[in-house]
Design a protein around this nucleic acid. Sequence first.
DNA 1: GAGCAAAGTTGATCTACATCAGATAAAATA
DNA 2: TATTTTATCTGATGTAGATCAACTTTGCTC
Lengths: 248, 248
Amino acid sequence: MIQNIQIRELTPRHLRQTCTNCSLRELCLPIGLTPDEMQELDTIISQARPIKRGEALYRAGEPFKSLFAIRVGFFKASVISEDGREQVTGFHMSGELMGMDAISSDFHTCDAIALEDSEVCELPFGEIEELAGDVPILQRHLYKVMSREIVRDHGVMLLLGNMKAEERLAAFLLNLSQRFAIRGYSSSSFHLRMTREEIGSYLGLKLETVSRTLSKFQDQGFIKVQNRLIEIIDGDSLKKLLNNCQGE
Amino acid sequence: MIQNIQIRELTPRHLRQTCTNCSLRELCLPIGLTPDEMQELDTIISQARPIKRGEALYRAGEPFKSLFAIRVGFFKASVISEDGREQVTGFHMSGELMGMDAISSDFHTCDAIALEDSEVCELPFGEIEELAGDVPILQRHLYKVMSREIVRDHGVMLLLGNMKAEERLAAFLLNLSQRFAIRGYSSSSFHLRMTREEIGSYLGLKLETVSRTLSKFQDQGFIKVQNRLIEIIDGDSLKKLLNNCQGE
DNA sequence: GAGCAAAGTTGATCTACATCAGATAAAATA
DNA sequence: TATTTTATCTGATGTAGATCAACTTTGCTC
């Protein structure tokens, strides 16, 4: 159940179609649209826009105009408290939608920073919204995507409120692994795009604890760590950690 | 900024109109609808349904049919992990909408438990959704409410990931205080509907820590605690705690 | 490829909070 | 009202993870 809440950020269905061109239809927009409706979507959605590593897609406080669909790349979203503490609220990869937090106030409430060279498609919210009024499938899809974000956030709360460092790291690695797998990448070997400090911020830990815990997992033979390259050797043991040794 | 993220769960605007009858129009549904549109909403929204203290409005795993608008009362929402750990994901009071997490999967992912005798109006989601297709104001409102929930969740993440016990408690008390104030109740004196354990679960602390910290605030003259009755004596000091003594 | 800045590792120590335990008070129930 | 149950408080002690510090590695930049 922890895994379910934590890991399922994107259902495989959303990526089952191959991505042939710039359009986001194949990525994070709904299936089942008529050709006409797709056409309409295409006229609304901008060409892919490149974002270089380190650049901000948007920043907290900026006026909200569009949602962004990640075509390729990797982003972190974070809120900064008044006194400068950063809380990473999520890591986002291809096929995911960013910026939904901004709808409520018409201003962005997070920073979205590219952690590798990326490409996004811009979805002007006013137009998307209007189209959604005419296309129930699209409307429903938007509700679902936002709801999924809420569920994901609840999972993170559970993690932050209840789990200990090892469990958090295990959940984090398994979540990443699963999300890479969904996208057709290796689930057992992947490259972390973020620093130990950013992982720590997301998981409510200090970077030293992240580092130590990764080392410990390596010593136990669960994973192999080579700087930012992670190889998952024994995923079952990681899962067992999460379940708090339920099985035995 | 911490306060902003934490505290603003409901804008005053939503409650400015007086509540005259059962309908939720005056509470958490949008203003600006035409009489016809209001009429339509009224036919969709059920009569208020009473929920006794301790009863579940819904439980994780149940199929999703409706959102619920709280007319009067107080609820907690919580997720339970496989190994039985409870994470309270929020406390909800009159005028707030519950159940949005369930849209993504068509199943509820939280338990919603009444912490006092309450009344809710049921909003059958299918019908609401359909109406929203015809009534842009309603559609936009639903997006905003869901977005606001995401922003609130990010605030909780910041709290759980970065703040220490005293800061968490201060944020919690100030948040409650503000939400009571918006509803026309005293912001300086209110009754906690939840146990210390439930507060702890929400804030990622053990009940003993909650108890101790409340006692400490009392010793410092910030608040007066009498079992579940809280009196806020020196809100500014609580705010200063939150801001990490920025001002000085 | 030398020099430098940023990221990561590892050890020693500290501390905020958890845990354990016992006492008290409130609330539910008979 | 008496009795059990549940919630709360407070003290003593333990510990996971923070903090501080030194060192190593990686990756830029000129």
